[in-house]
Design a protein around this nucleic acid. Structure first.
Lengths: 341, 341
DNA sequence: GTGAAAGCGCTAACAG
DNA sequence: CTGTTAGCGCTTTCAC
């Protein structure tokens, strides 16, 4: 039976066909109340016959709850958003929640507009996501629904922001390089203005200090998140005359650039230099020669965790406040096989 | 004023404060009907004072239309989904439509489940998106809302499927190689089981035939969509003893692998060999040495076009049927500078 | 066990 | 010009 919009089967149609009242039909279909099982069967049969599907809109209006969460991206979506969304979707789908997606595109006005729309649609909660760890303006207090910031840091300490732990991740990388026998480690990373770069550098410095080993060149090589910069930086390192046997890079792209430049200069990875990146970006780590050991930010888990917290908040448990850091994970590949030295 | 869920300001509150009836308040707030401007002002003021925001749920229920479209991904989302979504979002936002996102993850059951949910939520239309051009099962006829397949091909010819034109794209690449002076062109591509690979090969063969030039090795080199395969394929080509001065690769990843292998074998790009990829995937084309000329699939435009068609269908204009192919676009970079020969 | 009635928040139709 | 009424589709008392 073909039905256009506007003439969908309603629960009244089902009730009529089954010879019961709408209220009874509702109970039958939702397994509530006390009904003769024969009645229940009759209603279900009628619903099936008519191809009835509950109008969730009407139910939401009545229930005061939509089983929908809004996901608001700060900076448009990109490769960081994907794992976050996958994780969030996973957690939300388990709770039968749907996702209303809005792309703020880094535009505050647009974001406010979407916020209005989402609240107008009576979402049960909000996830705000971005792609940097740098603080961003809060959506505001006094919102009628709970909000979790995932891979985004609200500037209001009363909000809950969930982020990966860059310092801890850097520590993993450095300790792994040390464990594979490297003693003269350099750090090549992105722009100093990015908090993520500063955190990774801080983690690097701390882990080296704890081991009593030096940071080669005494400071990180700040640059861009690009392969090109990785190649440049490797050249700078080699020309500096400093000896080094390990490089921790602030991103897989940088690391891949470094790997290329080292290979072309005849320095062997991992035999002479151990190399670690950050991101576990498949196309980079697998494209790299040799395949790259890297720090995985666990973004899928982050998205999952953020959505889970939000679900709990929607169920009534108040949200924690402040910044929560989730640990990163080291993924070892060929670029850090044990040094023969 | 802080308001929790469930005690939101309604239009009745506004009406009461403004000393009018809900009906009048509705007209005032929506600029409909004939009202004294003073009344209108009073209502608006009251709404503002109370922080009133229309409950879109209630309005949708009444209007029979939700200003929401469902986006159902076939294969989980990834890098191809992003541009499609960006384009779609752009077109939809202009029509004040929101997006309910569901991730089918390549699971038919899950997809059916989401379809139910989306229809239950009374979306006004659906966009089905994937990441291959290979046919996929139709969502079915008899759906109460219009459906557009974007970067996904329904196996039902009565559905509207919108795809980029791989054959045309290949033609662009080949003619460009010819125009830059190449005459002995090879084709390295992905697995033959992928329609995209077969189409690109067909376009290649056709364009070469039209120009009366040979395909080196007489057939495409089928393989994988990976850099590794690109490197292997380049080696195979060089070892074959065949002369070649141009290579059209089925993806940017393959092309980048080819570029690396050629460079390491001392063959210069673009001086000795012109190289073209497909995808215009930034990280690949910019990471490639030299930067890669490539065929852009125009996925953002595809997403935009699909959403626009859907909007028109929602407005009542019936949807076209069948497969619509959108043209690709060539983006030239250093890898195909004019051959000196 | 089942039905009738009320109401979620909004808008459209019709009176006045 | 403004108020009243009815109804979108569903669920939930509360009678019977």
């Amino acid at each position: 039976m073909v039905r256009g919009r506007g003439n969908a089967v309603t629960i009244n149609d089902v009730a009529r066909l089954a010879g019961v009242s709408p209220g009874t039909a509702s109970k039958a279909l939702n397994g509530r109340g006390q009904l003769r099982s024969e009645t229940r069967r009759r209603v279900v049969a009628a619903a099936e016959q008519l191809g009835f599907h509950t109008n969730l809109l009407a139910r939401s209006l009545q229930e005061g709850r939509t089983y929908t969460v809004g996901v608001l991206t700060t900076d448009s979506f990109g490769r960081f958003t994907i794992p976050i969304m996958l994780g969030a979707e996973d957690a939300l789908a388990a709770g039968q929640m749907s996702v209303l997606l809005c792309d703020g595109r880094g535009d505050r006005i647009r974001e406010q507009h979407y916020l209005r729309t989402l609240l107008g649609r009576r979402v049960d909660g909000l996830i705000v996501t971005g792609r940097t760890t740098d603080p961003r303006p809060s959506l505001g207090r006094d919102l009628p629904v709970p909000v979790v910031y995932a891979l985004a840091r609200s500037d209001d300490p009363d909000d809950l922001s969930m982020l990966h732990d860059d310092q801890q991740g850097a520590g993993l990388a450095i300790r792994h390089l040390l464990a594979t026998g490297r003693r003269r480690i350099a750090h090549v990373t992105g722009p100093e203005r990015h908090l993520a770069a500063r955190d990774r550098a801080a983690g690097t410095v701390a882990a080296l200090a704890a081991a009593g080993e030096p940071l080669i060149l005494d400071q990180p090589l700040w640059g861009e998140w690009s392969e090109r910069w990785g190649r440049q930086a490797a050249t700078i390192l080699m020309r500096s005359g400093a000896e080094f046997d390990g490089i921790f890079c602030g991103s897989d792209q940088i690391a891949r650039g470094v790997a290329d430049a080292l290979r072309e200069a005849g320095r062997r990875v991992p035999e002479e230099v151990g190399l670690v990146g950050v991101d576990n970006w498949e196309v980079m780590v697998e494209g790299c020669r040799p395949p790259l050991t890297t720090v995985d930010l666990n973004l899928t888990e982050l998205g999952h965790a953020a959505a889970s917290k939000l679900l709990r908040a929607i169920e009534g448990h108040p949200l924690e406040k402040g910044v929560q850091l989730l640990p990163c994970r080291l993924v070892t590949r060929h670029s850090t096989e044990m040094s023969p030295l």
